[in-house]
Amino acid sequence: MTAVLDARGIGMTFRNGDELTPVLSDVDLALQPGELVALLGASGSGKSTLLSIVGLLLRPTAGVITIGGERVDILSDAKSSLFRNQRLGFIFQFHNLLPDFTAIENVAFPAAATSGGITGVMRKRASELLDRVGLSDRIDFLATRLSGGQKQRVSIARALMNRPELVLADEPTGSLDRAAADQVLALMREINREDRTTFLICTHDEKVAAGCARRITLFDGRVDDARA
């Protein structure tokens, strides 16, 4: 079976003038279809950097990344944008939704922005996703009128809009209270179980990590892989 994600020998060194700061060194990471993986590590361990590299938001200084069988670390800016749009989903901790748009517009946005507008098919898909995350009664609410937990559920729906092979979540429960965090985690687990969507969740929350089938810990820029 082709791995959803296959990253080999990933290295990342930041340069600040003459000063070089190595963050990741020779990291290997492979995710199979349908996996729910927690990426753990202390603050500064490089987990957000790794997530950004896997999400094509940052180009590694070393290594090769393949997603869904396609080598992606060498894609141009325009191609990596399109790849992110079509084949990856993102959930962030903060600033997740576009405040001037309704819940359904936020969900449909990734599809609409690349095809010139929100079509009926997109609206139907977005509506189904919002129904799935339990927000069918908030479809036409502006993002600013939603609670933190609701916003994060909308962002999960948005991440799924283009049926991605891999969803990358960066501290998705980090800014939520316990109840909302539990709801969001349960939702991601449900989607992973039912749709076999692969999730890579960057977190420092042990409870979130415990809910994942596999946990990868970064320590001093190196990987310690463990399966549940």
Partner: peptide, 14 residues
């Protein structure tokens, strides 16, 4: 800036 960053993250083109 942050909204533009979010858009760019989910693949909206420049």
């Amino acid at each position: 800036r942050s909204e533009i960053g979010i858009m760019r993250a989910f693949g909206v083109s420049r």
